[in-house]
Design a protein around this nucleic acid. Structure first.
Lengths: 225, 225
DNA sequence: TGCGTTATCCCCAGTTCTGGGGAGATCATC
DNA sequence: GATGATCTCCCCAGAACTGGGGATAACGCA
């Protein structure tokens, strides 16, 4: 797989690639982690556990299609810390690049990135092609890397349960939910109990987050209006 | 947007398209719903609330790249009910098709599908191109559909606060967090209080969700490892 | 008709959170 | 040397949540 990636990367005019799930890099886990980045940068990245806060990763969580690193501030706003991370990466030899996000509900977020050497220019005309390659590369790596065990079917909620969970995620108390839905507080407590049971969690915080993660509710449901 | 989609659909040799978030279709909400499917099928789809159980939608939740409908059983196993849904769609005039999933963490699952008329054959050679078009079409629709409320500035958390919030998001109690971080429970309570204050929320559930939304923590922090 | 699912309601004991009020220590910065 | 930010710890009262145990009614499906 690495050989193939290296070949593709070179053929597309890039220097480096990274095909990764955004997690702390434990080789043991069933996650994708195929990287050819400057060694120096990889080490710093791991040491500082940037997988969660790296601006490129963060941006990739906000979109569905690939983006050039030089345009990252059109997706998220960069803090001073972000800028220094990007500058450091440049120092380490990473120039401009292109990252294709890869998200699947219930799985860890991932991405496939290709980068130029520092100083070289991206050829924007072929980015659509890179987008395509990135998507399929990630899917291929994903299929290989998971021996396909922990397929937890997304437990579905009943309509009432889903309504309650959506309101839980808005930070409403059981009593408030009962007023909104026009039912008794005890009923709400029961629905929330049942929903927790279905997801196999014991805290309403986790219930809300799981529902978000599974796509059962969206941030729009939480913050919308 | 509909005109453009119709044109593209025709140019690629398809008859129908659907650019949708997988939700019950509330016109009011900030969700994507641009469809040109046989009217008959659209009505049945809505009446039976298939958006959650439709096999094509279900399959699209399991992958990152597009797939031909005729190959759906290579992604999920079809039940008798699934087969009858597919047969019904065919009756209604939908032939083979190609669906490109569109997932973004924390947002509703969506997809962009193109379909032939019943009886016509897919041209498999151009599916990579369809994949590309589908991805970008969804992203474009998504960007348009939310006029995107003004970026509220992100109040940043201190390191300790962020650590506590990450653990709150994992459903830990204050006592458990104190054990994990090796500090007193009262201290944890204080950090969580302070974090709630910064975000201006009163519930730890909202605290966790806001932190997720702001990118202060990621789903990887919650489910990772 | 019986069985499962869903939605509705009730009670209770124990745990956890929330919102107030404190305080001392360190560190950088001005 | 004062000021602010951060981290650490403490107390308390009331509200909210969790995990048990119940119950009734409606609906569809076999």
């Amino acid at each position: 797989m690495s050989d193939l990636m290296a070949e593709i990367t070179k053929a597309m005019g890039f220097r480096h690639y990274a095909l990764v799930h955004h997690v702390d890099l434990k080789p043991a886990v069933r996650s994708v982690h195929i990287v050819d980045y400057p060694q120096d940068w990889v080490e710093r990245f791991q040491a500082r556990r940037l997988y969660a806060s790296d601006p490129i990763h963060r941006a990739s969580h906000r979109t569905n299609v690939g983006f050039a690193w030089s345009a990252v501030q059109s997706i998220i706003s960069l803090t001073a810390a972000d800028r220094s991370i990007l500058a450091e990466a440049y120092e380490a030899g990473l120039g401009d690049g292109f990252t294709v996000p890869a998200h699947i509900p219930g799985e860890l977020n991932g991405s496939c990135s290709f980068a130029m050497a520092a100083g070289e220019m991206l050829d924007h005309r072929q980015l659509p092609f890179v987008q395509l390659v990135g998507s399929f590369a990630f899917e291929a790596a994903r299929k290989i890397s998971r021996i396909h065990a922990p397929q937890s079917e997304c437990p579905s909620l009943t309509e009432r349960q889903a309504e309650c969970v959506a309101l839980v995620a808005r930070g409403k108390t059981d009593w408030e939910i009962s007023q909104i839905l026009g039912i008794g507080q005890e009923t709400v407590i029961q629905h929330v109990k049942d929903a927790r049971d279905r997801y196999g969690v014991t805290k309403r915080t986790l219930l809300a987050i799981r529902a978000l993660f599974e796509g059962q509710i969206s941030f729009a449901d939480v913050f919308g209006r």
